[in-house]
Amino acid sequence: MTETETESAEPFGARLRKALDTRGPLCVGVDPHPALLGAWSLPDSVAGLERFALTAVEALAERVAVLKPQSSFFERFGSAGIAVLERTIAEARAAGALVIVDAKRGDIGSTVEAYADAYLSPSSSLFTDAVTVSPYLGFGSLEPFFERAERYGCGVFVLAFTSNPEGAAVQRAVAEGGETVGASILAQAAARNGEAVPMGPIGAVVGATLTDPIPFDLATLNGAVLAPGLGAQGGTPEGLRGLFGATTANVLPSMSREVLRHGPDAAVLRRAARRAVEEFRTALGYPAAAS
């Protein structure tokens, strides 16, 4: 695919909507941390990393809407690990899954330009469908990500209200005007998404384990809401409707260990993912899957 061809690609919001409607609402995190490698009887090495990641791709990429490799677990093996990440992204996308690289990047100036080029420019070997970013150097500092996402049909997921306890000190702090920092981030994302149909390229990360209300009407975001923390971290399918209310159609539930612990048998992994999809279809009010 040439850069020119990619510029005219279908927007990310449309591609994600289609994936959710046809494959069901599920993002599976590809998190090859040492404990999971050990549970699969794999060595904590590049060879183990590669076997784990590519088995997950083989089992799931033709079936689930989204795969989300966590970059840190690949980076810890240096250049050899990054090479595995490149292959994981490419093979998952070739099999039909959308790929979100969970990298949580954020910086300013030429540095954030370089990060944006790494993940959202077609000339990069790490080119992916979407990437997670941190807006806590200022929402506007992420402009290079937004510009490339719009140009190349990609997505950007900004951290808004995360489920880790430490996050609340920043995200729920009250800014001038009485708005929380997290709500301000969501409002700026909503403004950038505008009236895009079916939804814009800028999504938000909102933890599925949150217990306090979200001080923002997510129905106005007009973007996808990536909801990590389901399964092993305590979030439940039933809890999603209470947390996200009227915006459930745009929620992308994400789980990792709850699916991956069923490996390394590919057939068992597929069955686990299929069960999760059906649970989330019911919880989020999707029509029943065609038999």
Rank of each mutant, 00 (worst) to 15 (best):
Y119H: 14
K18F: 04
F216M: 11
R148D: 08
V181F: 07
L269G: 06
P165H: 03
L221H: 06
E75K: 15
G78W: 10
R63P: 01
A103W: 00
D129W: 10
R172F: 13
P264N: 07
G78C: 12
V225T: 03
D265K: 10
D212E: 15
G182R: 11
E258P: 03
A47R: 04
V268E: 14
R76G: 06
L16M: 05
T209V: 06
P32I: 03
V28M: 09
R51Y: 04
V170C: 00
L186C: 12
S79I: 11
L218K: 08
A183R: 07
V133R: 08
A39L: 14
S125E: 05
Q233C: 11
A204H: 13
V57T: 06
F52T: 03
D117A: 14
V206P: 00
G167R: 04
G239T: 05
A224R: 04
V268Q: 10
F127K: 05
D44Q: 10
M255T: 13
A175Y: 09
L36A: 09
E75Y: 07
F146T: 02
V131K: 13
G109Q: 08
L67Y: 07
G138Q: 10
V64L: 03
F157V: 13
S125A: 14
M255K: 09
A173E: 02
S71E: 13
P43V: 12
I108A: 04
R241P: 00
R257Y: 02
A175R: 13
L60C: 07
R275K: 06
D129H: 14
V268S: 11
K18S: 14
P253T: 06
E176N: 05
S110Q: 12
A191K: 15
F52P: 01
A204Q: 09
V101M: 14
R87N: 07
P165E: 05
G229L: 05
F280K: 02
L36C: 05
Q188H: 15
R241S: 14
L252I: 12
A175V: 04
T211M: 07
G235N: 10
S8M: 07
A266L: 05
F52R: 03
A289D: 03
V197I: 05
